[in-house]
Design a protein around this nucleic acid. Structure first.
Length: 410
DNA sequence: GGACGACCTGC
DNA sequence: CAGGTCGTC
């Protein structure tokens, strides 16, 4: 049976590309709640599905290593009938077709040429997924110059990068996040793929599936199926949103939102059931190229109040639409057109599971889950003076961290 | 615009 | 209650 690859025991099988850890930290980027489908399958090795293929990624100081697994060991036998019924609804995605097409053209030197093709395409897929053309180090410098609190966090949490996810996966994953916590969301997304997605391969007892297609999600039987799988009221949102997209817009609509302005894309998404301001912002930021989208959830609100002395919404009991806009505008003014990227760094730094990184290096601390309030004694290394200094950020003349043009919302 | 309560489930 | 959203007032 095929196994998860490990770099140490087979370096020749791996491909690599130059990539500094200051530009990308796999551990932070893949586990900070942007995507729910990557797992650490060996120390520092992350396995997941991207672009219809199964990958294992790992990194050394200046190198990103990757392996792509071929289709194999697809266990159709043991699967339950529910999934069989749905698999028939799957269609191969476009890039896969192009990929197959490309292979056929190269009949002269089958082995060598296809491998080159292969390598080139896979490297491009990674560059696109991690948006490696965006120079994160430069952005960190700008954010740090505009914002002392960011600078303080950024020294530890380097390489937190926004993924460019598939819009369908991103949308339907984030519909699952409402009123929910990360550990449960991960399980739900996994079951969603297992029930409705096409199987890709199996490694060490673990089966990997593609994310379900829109048509699979839109099937009228899906709500009942997902309720059985513990999705609760979100089951209906998922099915209805898929159906609404196909009925009133069509297959290409979601990807098309990459080419419209932020607010327009946001409004379009919000017409879907189960998609409010927060989910729409997540989808815009993480899959639709809207770097200025700043998703405001309860944690980000806490961060705004605690670290930026943000007081405008102090009267509010919960986050209203206006508060969303105001806090978003506050951060866009502070950080500029890539405000959503900067926000994800602070969000990551606030996750309980990453608190141990804030400790002095040689001290060890048991690892935990979810968000911390940053109040647990050991982990909070910020002094009172530092906090007060940070608070002054709000009062200083905030101007966008010099980029060409901040397409800030009206 | 803002304040509720309901909505599924599990830790 | 948890990384919200929806319907109603």
């Amino acid at each position: 049976m095929a196994k998860h690859a490990v770099l140490l025991s087979g370096a020749k099988m791996w491909r690599s590309m130059a990539c500094a850890k200051s530009e990308l930290r796999l551990d932070l980027t893949l586990a900070c709640g942007q995507s729910f489908r990557w797992r650490e399958t060996a120390d520092g090795h992350w396995t997941g599905v991207m672009g219809g293929r199964v990958w294992t990624l790992t990194q050394t100081d200046d190198t990103l290593w990757y392996r792509v697994y071929k289709k194999q060991d697809i266990g159709v036998e043991g699967s339950d009938r529910k999934r069989k019924a749905y698999v028939s609804l799957q269609t191969e995605n476009e890039s896969e077709k192009r990929f197959q097409g490309a292979l056929k053209k190269e009949e002269e030197e089958p082995v060598a040429v296809t491998l080159v093709q292969d390598t080139h395409e896979e490297e491009e897929m990674l560059r696109d997924y991690f948006q490696l053309n965006v120079k994160l180090g430069d952005l960190y410098k700008e954010w740090g110059a505009a914002d002392p609190h960011f600078k303080h966090i950024a020294d530890i949490f380097t390489g937190v990068r926004m993924l460019r996810q598939d819009p369908t996966e991103c949308l339907f994953s984030f519909i699952c996040t409402s009123n929910n916590h990360i550990s449960r969301i991960q399980g739900m997304v996994e079951r969603l793929c297992q029930a409705l997605g096409a199987p890709l391969c199996q490694l060490d007892q673990t089966s990997y599936y593609n994310f379900p297609s829109l048509s699979a999600l839109a099937d009228s039987s899906v709500e009942a199926c997902l309720r059985d799988l513990g999705f609760g009221y979100r089951a209906r949102f998922l099915q209805q949103s898929a159906k609404q997209i196909l009925d009133t817009h069509g297959l290409e609509w979601l990807e098309g939102l990459r080419r419209v302005p932020y607010l327009q894309a946001c409004d379009a998404l919000r017409t879907l059931p189960g998609v409010g301001t927060k989910v729409a912002d997540c989808v815009c930021l993480m899959s639709l190229d809207k770097a200025e989208a700043v998703p405001i959830d309860t944690h980000v609100w806490q961060i705004a109040k605690r670290d930026y002395n943000y007081a405008s919404g102090n009267r509010q009991k919960s986050i209203t639409d206006k508060l969303h806009r105001d806090i978003g505008d506050f951060f866009r003014k502070l950080w500029g057109p890539y405000a959503g990227w900067a926000q994800s760094v602070l969000f990551c730094a606030d996750l309980k599971k990453f608190q141990k990184l804030k400790e002095v290096p040689h001290l060890k601390q048991p690892q935990e889950e979810e968000h911390g309030e940053g109040e647990t004694s050991v982990v909070c290394k910020k002094t009172k003076m530092q906090r007060e200094k940070d608070a002054t950020v709000k009062n200083m003349k905030t101007k966008p961290a010099s980029h060409k043009k901040a397409k800030l919302s009206a």
